Amino acid sequence: MRGSVRGPRRSLAQRIDSLCRLEGEFVLRSGTVASEYFDKYLFESDPHTLRAVAERMVPLLPPDTDVLGGLELGGVPIATILSSLTSLPVAFVRKEAKTYGTCRLAEGRDVTGARVTLVEDVITTGGAVRAAAVALRAQSAVVSTVLCAIDRSPAGHHPLADAGVEIRSVLVRADLDRARARA
């Protein structure tokens, strides 16, 4: 669900952009050096912004959701707040199953046979969501939707179409770009 930023959404985009956009010298995952970096954990560690994001996810939630699946690491705090707001149980989905103890991929609520709505902070390529959807489906979960705070994939590109996962986002890349331009 892509759209333009209006009113409270614009304010949220401006708040997230001002919290998370850092200037300096940063080495990116690719090895490239950048003068600007978007630190998504800064909005997730701010309780008011985190709650505002989760509140805006509530109307995006498919009504047939049985379990929220918070993806490690960024989706966990959002899924926890969303669980509190909706009274839906939550499973915390690891990048890979533990090799000790319970050896689970998803901690918390059992996902077997459940309609799981994944929760992620930022989607760019969709790799983590795709991997989680495949792994949870292997455990008989039904996964068709991911809620994310920010969809940073290019406009018009759906990085999870091949995985059969719909992206529903609070904000998109253009929302943050407009917020930055207004700053």
Rank of each mutant, 00 (worst) to 15 (best):
I16T: 06
V76L: 14
D46P: 03
G113M: 04
G101P: 02
F38P: 02
L12Q: 08
L105C: 03
R130P: 06
T49H: 09
G74M: 03
P59D: 06
L22V: 05
E96F: 01
T99E: 14
D46R: 05
V53F: 00
G126L: 15
L136S: 12
A97W: 14
Y100E: 07
I78Y: 07
T49I: 12
V116N: 03
T125H: 15
L60C: 02
L22Y: 02
Y37D: 04
D64C: 09
V122E: 12
Y100A: 07
V33M: 08
L68H: 01
L61M: 11
G74P: 03
S35L: 07
S45K: 12
V76Q: 08
K98G: 02
L82D: 15
T102I: 01
S45D: 14
C103K: 12
A128T: 15
R109K: 06
T112S: 08
L68I: 00
L60R: 10
R94T: 11
G127A: 10
I81D: 07
S30M: 08
F38K: 02
I123R: 12
V58E: 07
V93L: 09
D39W: 11
T99K: 12
L136Y: 02
A131C: 04
R29I: 04
L68R: 00
Y37V: 05
Y37M: 03
L85F: 14
R94Y: 13
P47W: 14
G31S: 12
V119S: 00
V58L: 06
R15M: 02
P59E: 03
A132Q: 07
R104H: 05
Q14R: 09
L82M: 15
L19K: 04
E36A: 11
L88Q: 00
G24R: 13
G101D: 04
Y100V: 09
A97S: 14
L60T: 11
A34L: 01
F26C: 06
S83P: 12
V116C: 06
L82Q: 15
A131Y: 04
T124G: 11
R29Q: 14
L82N: 15
L105M: 04
G108A: 02
L118C: 00
E23K: 13
T32L: 15
A97L: 10
L82P: 15
L28P: 12
S87P: 05
F92M: 13
A91T: 06
L19D: 02
F92Q: 08
T117D: 08
